[in-house]
């Protein structure tokens, strides 16, 4: 039924009885293996652009505090900006329920064994929202610093969240992801006095991997840095209008 992805139209087996027997023919292909995802991501991107929607793809390790960051942000800004949140997890609707409790529309995508969201899931996921009445679509990807780096969802940019309990060398260990991010949020700053985490070393590693990335350090608990993040969001939304 879906005209973009043709996902309900699996009739390939129906017509397959050619008898040509030209042994050992070579067929040149040259097709990108992510072509299908990229095509669907382009469809998503065009759809978001039509509504002037800012779309962020939040990526991180599990437990970096993405959902708490979203909850805090939504409680602070949902009187000035219209948000919706797509939640990606292998199992449970826990995160979507937490988001819904803030009064913002949320939809949970369960990937099952899947380690990342793809453009197909997102294309169908946003059918649950009234895109014409939104300013910001936040996509919380599956907690995983590897696979989500390879899959374009049609977002404006990836935002990587790194919590200081993870250690300062995460950018060096997972460079693909930190290179793909336009903004890196260093989270849980309130825990700094209790940890051996060296902020300057972490900033330096990030600079090595991605010298262009904007970095915002914050704590949802203490509120430190939150206004900088909110202002960044406001600026990105303003660019879309």
């Amino acid at each position: 039924m879906c005209i973009d992805c043709g996902c309900a139209e699996r009739t390939e087996q129906a017509h397959h009885h050619h008898d040509q027997n030209q042994a050992g023919r070579t067929i040149r292909v040259g097709e990108d293996l992510l072509a299908k995802n990229d095509r669907l991501a382009a469809v998503n991107r065009a759809r978001f652009a039509e509504y002037g929607l800012l779309t962020l793809n939040l990526v991180s390790s599990p437990g970096s505090g993405k959902t708490t960051l979203l909850e805090t942000t939504l409680r602070a800004l949902s009187n000035e900006l219209r948000f919706a949140v797509l939640e990606g997890d292998q199992q449970t609707a826990n995160d979507a329920e937490r988001i819904a409790a803030t009064g913002v529309p949320a939809h949970q995508i369960n990937t099952g064994a899947g380690c990342h969201l793809d453009a197909h899931m997102v294309g169908h996921g946003v059918d649950h929202f009234d895109l014409a009445n939104l300013d910001v679509l936040l996509i919380e990807n599956v907690g995983n610093l590897v696979c989500p780096a390879s899959f374009d969802l049609g977002e404006d940019c990836k935002v990587a969240v790194l919590s200081i309990t993870e250690g300062e060398d995460k950018p060096l260990k997972y460079p693909q992801m930190f290179r793909a991010a336009e903004l890196v949020i260093i989270n849980k700053l309130d825990l700094l006095p209790h940890l051996d985490f060296d902020l300057e070393t972490c900033r330096d590693y990030l600079r090595q991997v991605n010298p262009q990335a904007r970095v915002i350090e914050l704590s949802c608990k203490s509120g430190a840095g939150m206004e900088t993040w909110y202002n960044w969001l406001r600026e990105q939304v303003a660019k879309k209008k």
Binding site: T26, R28, V29, L34, R207, Q212
Partner: peptide, 20 residues
């Protein structure tokens, strides 16, 4: 200097097939 531009190596392509 940091921020090396990537010229090659991000390919992920199916090049060719042999079929009967």
């Amino acid at each position: 200097a940091l921020g090396l531009e990537r010229l090659q190596g991000e390919e992920l392509r199916i090049k060719e097939l042999e079929v009967d």
